[in-house]
Amino acid sequence: MEEFRKKCKGVIFIFCFTLLSLVLMSTFQGAEKAYGADKVETGKKVYQKYCIICHGNKGDGKGLVGIIHRVEKSGLVWTLFPRDFTVGVFKFRSTPTGCLPTDEDLLRIVSNGIPRSGMPSHEDVSLEDRKAVIEYIKTFSPRWQEEDPCEEIVSVKKPKWVGSPESIAKGKKVYKKMKCWECHGYEGKGDGPKSDKLKDDWGDKIIPFDFTSGALKRGSSPENVYITFNTGLDGTGMPSYEDSLKEEDRWHLVSYTLKLLGLAE
């Protein structure tokens, strides 16, 4: 019995010691920082290979390529600026307005690119390199160190009736009531009464999206459209409707938007 008790004490002692040392090691800031710094170094090399030519040495979007112009089917010329990482504001996030994007958001953009813009896809770069370059990009703005991260991530569960004619009709009413047409126009052509004076947060002229022109930059799936209503597109004139619309109404609006895009009847 004594023997057994001694053995138990020993085991428990070893257990506590192991637990303590593990905890100490995992919270040892120095080690973590060293590991993080390694990734940033790799990321910097990747950045200078693929990204610097558009996004610039300082990450401010003023690379050698400069501004890109695209003309869509209606003849309207889009002016596209490479993103300025030093400000730390991103359009396509899964976090609410005012929040930083998640690492997954950044990885998705780097991997898939943004269609109908100047950002190409980088699927040919290894996943490890892509993750490393994201760590480097995060060093351009102090926001990632200074700010508390956002807890909420927009949850997206598409109901079955999205895209049905009843939902489209309801969505049309929501579109009218929410005054989307003030910027996007009654037919979604981006020619609403407020559309010609719009400027983004940095003083550059910006046009509301013309839904009849083709796919959305974020992707035209119902989930992508829904997320945009929730998060707003920070840095542009597109606000968040999270606090103005019930979830059900947001999905009706998605149906109507799909119709304007020509993806639903």
């Binding site: 300025d84 030093t86 400000v87 730390g88 504001v89 307005t97 005012g98 926001r143 009531k177 929410m178 005054k179 003030e182 947060d201 940095w202 707003g232 597109l233 920070d234 840095g235 542009t236 004139g237 597109m238 606000p239 968040s240 409707y241 606090d243 103005s244």
Partner: peptide
């Protein structure tokens, strides 16, 4: 009428979005 309230913090030479909120209703 429709207002949207866009808050942004003025950094040295750029504006950084804080919130961009849509307020389409009266008394919202």
């Amino acid at each position: 009428l429709f207002h949207n309230t866009s808050l942004g913090v003025l950094l040295k030479d750029k504006r950084r979005a804080v919130y961009n909120l849509a307020l389409p209703y009266q008394n919202q």
